[in-house]
């Protein structure tokens, strides 16, 4: 299916957010996620099914003021 990850189009086979993140190289990273503007906790990623056209945000720590 075709999804958007941080606004970039990605083709994934994965059915869940957890599997998709692993496939994209995010496994084991310190990240937080949202799907279609809603926060998805790490514990909820394996149970979060993805659909064609979903917009996923993946964020990590960065410098801030």
């Amino acid at each position: 299916m075709r999804i958007f990850v941080n606004d970039e189009v990605r083709e994934v086979d994965a059915g869940t957010l957890a599997v998709a993140l692993d496939a994209m190289g995010f496994g084991g990273r310190k990240i937080a996620t949202a799907v279609n503007g809603r926060f998805v906790a790490a514990t909820a990623r394996p149970g979060t099914k993805l659909a064609d056209g979903d917009r996923i945000e993946v964020v990590a720590p960065m410098q801030g003021g």
Binding site: N6, E8, M24, G25, F26, R29, K30, I31, A32, E57, V58, V59, A60, P61, M62, Q63, G64, G65
Partner: peptide
């Protein structure tokens, strides 16, 4: 110290490096 969060791709590790420093 204040910190923030921003998008990260699967190939870069800037966020992970910054977090280790903090």
């Amino acid at each position: 110290v204040t910190v923030s969060l921003r998008r990260e791709s699967g190939s870069e590790r800037a966020g992970q490096t910054f977090w280790s420093l903090v």
